[in-house]
Design a protein around this nucleic acid. Sequence first.
DNA 1: AATGCTATTATGTCTAGACAAAATAAGTCA
DNA 2: TGACTTATTTTGTCTAGACATAATAGCATT
Lengths: 233, 233
Amino acid sequence: MSGLGRISHRDISSEIVRRIAERLWEPGALIPGEQALAAEFGCSRATVNRALQDLARSGILERRRKAGTRVSLNPVREARFVIPLVRQEIEAKGAAYGYRLLGCEPVTPDEELRARLGFGKPARMLHVRCLHLADGAPYQYEDRWINLDAVPEAGGVSFSAVSPNEWLVTNAPFSRAEFIFRAAHAGGEEAALLGVPEGGAVFVAERLTWLADKPVTFVRMVHPPSHRVVTEL
Amino acid sequence: MSGLGRISHRDISSEIVRRIAERLWEPGALIPGEQALAAEFGCSRATVNRALQDLARSGILERRRKAGTRVSLNPVREARFVIPLVRQEIEAKGAAYGYRLLGCEPVTPDEELRARLGFGKPARMLHVRCLHLADGAPYQYEDRWINLDAVPEAGGVSFSAVSPNEWLVTNAPFSRAEFIFRAAHAGGEEAALLGVPEGGAVFVAERLTWLADKPVTFVRMVHPPSHRVVTEL
DNA sequence: AATGCTATTATGTCTAGACAAAATAAGTCA
DNA sequence: TGACTTATTTTGTCTAGACATAATAGCATT
């Protein structure tokens, strides 16, 4: 507890975490009800409720009506990764951001891409390829398709100064997204652009977005193997 | 809104998301204050507050005292990846789970590993290596170090039947964790075990855990390049 | 033994009011 | 002009009480 004044939900959270860490409350065990804890901490039940809900959201506790609250048997079921703009990601590392447009042309998506996006019929799309640099070194190769039916304004943008990443973020809202992380072997062009040997390992992040079930954009972001996606909890 | 009865914080959340998606409230724009929204929705300020806080936590809104609440300019949306037990992950795919212990011996960590874990002085650790199989095919190579000062009971476990992954989850609580995803080139032993060519691309997930600033375990999980980490939001 | 109803209980959520804390804006003084 | 102080606004959080809802356990019935 933070000493003075009223009890905060943070105080309760951290005290509960402490009890779990010190094995006073074992994994799988039932912990006291909200009323009991409120009495113990000398605060209202609402405050205890907020603390417990926070911990449950982060996976440390599991709660069920009537059954009560118990310490998760396998804690941390989920990790959260923030997905920033490439430029911010690079600048946060203290490096100078660079951008190079490689190509930008209207296309009709092939069968595979349509299946991936859940398209019924073919549609007009914009294919944009570009390179993001950190202190002059290749950082990310971005290979992107934009659905012009969902974002018609994109047809009039040149993307020579502002990257599609950045433009879309403030111009194409979405309601659903899917992320995929994986390792892959660098193809010929990718390899050359990223400065890795052909067939060498690269880190690939893919993102698909929809606005109300209409595909918005699909992007393949390819990084050299030095790239790391880090998260803490 | 869900029609009948009282207004719920979910109703408010989804209405706000709708307004943002439909560009009634543009990215970067200031939205009405809690009091105004409470009046509009006919509910108490606390309910509006909860809805707005939820949306702020998920990155859709940004809030600052006195300055008010605005639609995030760059939705630094967070992706949540569920990190299940390997066995559950494999069984969820409908494959049969297999496990093979490759080695288990006490060691003193080298300089690099100690720096990584934030060790002051050398410590006794247990080095466990094993392979997880899906339908007989290599799925994940697990290379793990366990700090015997933090988890002394681990010294008496053979890990021949139950994997360290599974044992630790219910026996070694932690208060902080760090995840890293990246691509790498398969080393000699790894390559042979996973059935990929030496130097071929592999997907690596690393996890470090601490209990109250004391390192608990470090694990390197190596997957063949067919592996995908997927998430939706 | 299996099924279905009912009371009970713990969490989920809302209200109305209050005060705290942070951050901006405005005003004051050198 | 520039630095400092004060007022004001908006979100952050707590309280006490109430009702809602889900899930269990026990009882009664078939």
